[in-house]
């Protein structure tokens, strides 16, 4: 067994244990896992391609809304709509973002992706899309997924499966080429390849998990609304989680998601939701400045102390 498979199997066992342990508050475990899915898929593309993608929620929203529309308007059975939603969402998001990342990079890409989600939110809420999306009210009720231990373990499995796949991709030839493309596209061009072919694959894989997560998430939430799909605040939450956890590590996103969701869980009885957000944003801000590599870098030091001789995670 490869080192990657051992690590991701161990991660799956740890997440399952956490789910069993906290089964009284299973909805928080599920919520943390969803955010881990969104944050890990975001940082997989953003951290390894060098393109800061603020339009990641396009995948989540396209997957979520497609599944919701099929289920709500056409009464398709939920499992079918989720599968179709995941695929359609991945393709729509990729067909939009892939040509843009070929054309613009740096701050311009960041801007375009950022502006795109504001534009999409506006479109989803507008009169034109209303027959399809129900505007502010969103598509609700949808066939729901219940907060069960089984579901918690199921999406943890999805997370770890993709985590394993991502790790394999990063250590494959394509991943090694991406290592160069991130730092210098010219070096890849003069080696005889179009760098965007490789960053485009990264984007596709990133979108597949996000879109699948998005399709599951709307059914789990019971509604497809902008606040759990396309909205800027949702995007920022994902970014903050990835940064808090450590965006240069796939495991960092899991750490960040559990940290933020459980911090919210502890704060909820004490403070209002505005203050909760403020604290979490402040925390993201502080961690970004103090430990640019996130909480995982602290955890790594601890792990290395306990397991001597072990190389760094990721």
């Amino acid at each position: 067994m490869s080192r990657d498979s051992v690590r991701w199997a161990a991660t799956f066992v740890a997440l399952t244990l956490a789910a069993v342990l906290f089964r009284a508050d299973i909805s928080f475990v599920i919520s943390a896992t969803f955010f881990a899915i969104f944050a890990m898929s975001w940082s997989f593309f953003t951290s390894y391609s060098g393109y800061l993608n603020l339009g990641h929620v396009i995948f989540i929203g396209m997957g979520g809304y497609t599944s919701a529309i099929l289920n709500y308007h056409l009464d398709w059975p939920m499992p079918v709509s989720i599968v179709i939603g995941s695929i359609v969402g991945t393709l729509l998001g990729w067909l939009y973002l892939n040509p843009i990342h070929k054309r613009v990079s740096g701050l311009s890409f960041e801007m375009v992706s950022f502006l795109s989600i504001i534009a999409l939110t506006n479109l989803v809420l507008s009169g034109y899309a209303r027959p399809l999306t129900n505007g502010d009210l969103g598509l609700s009720p949808l066939d729901g997924i219940f907060s069960t231990l089984g579901f918690a373990i199921g999406i943890a499995a999805l997370l770890c499966l993709f985590g394993y796949g991502y790790s394999r991709f990063l250590s494959s030839n394509s991943g090694k080429i991406v290592d160069f493309a991130r730092e210098s596209q010219d070096i890849v061009r003069t080696a005889g390849a179009d760098p965007h072919r490789y960053t485009g694959r990264l984007l596709l894989l990133s979108g597949l998990l996000a879109s699948t997560g998005g399709a599951l998430y709307v059914h789990y939430s019971g509604a497809a609304v902008v606040s759990n799909t396309f909205e800027l605040a949702f995007m920022i939450r994902i970014v903050v989680i990835a940064i808090i956890g450590g965006r240069f590590s796939l495991y960092g996103s899991i750490v960040g998601a559990y940290f933020v969701v459980f911090a919210g869980f502890l704060l909820k009885p004490v403070v209002s939701s505005h203050i909760e957000f403020l604290i979490i944003y402040g925390l993201g801000f502080a961690i970004y400045f103090l430990w640019p590599k996130g909480l995982i870098s602290i955890l790594e030091v601890a792990i290395r102390r306990v397991v001597p001789g072990r190389k760094s995670v990721q």
Partner: peptide, 16 residues
């Protein structure tokens, strides 16, 4: 209700 979408599309097109 579609004004932000139209205006942003202009910005996106210019950026690209």
């Amino acid at each position: 209700r579609i004004r932000a979408f139209v205006i942003l599309s202009l910005a996106i097109a210019i950026l690209i």
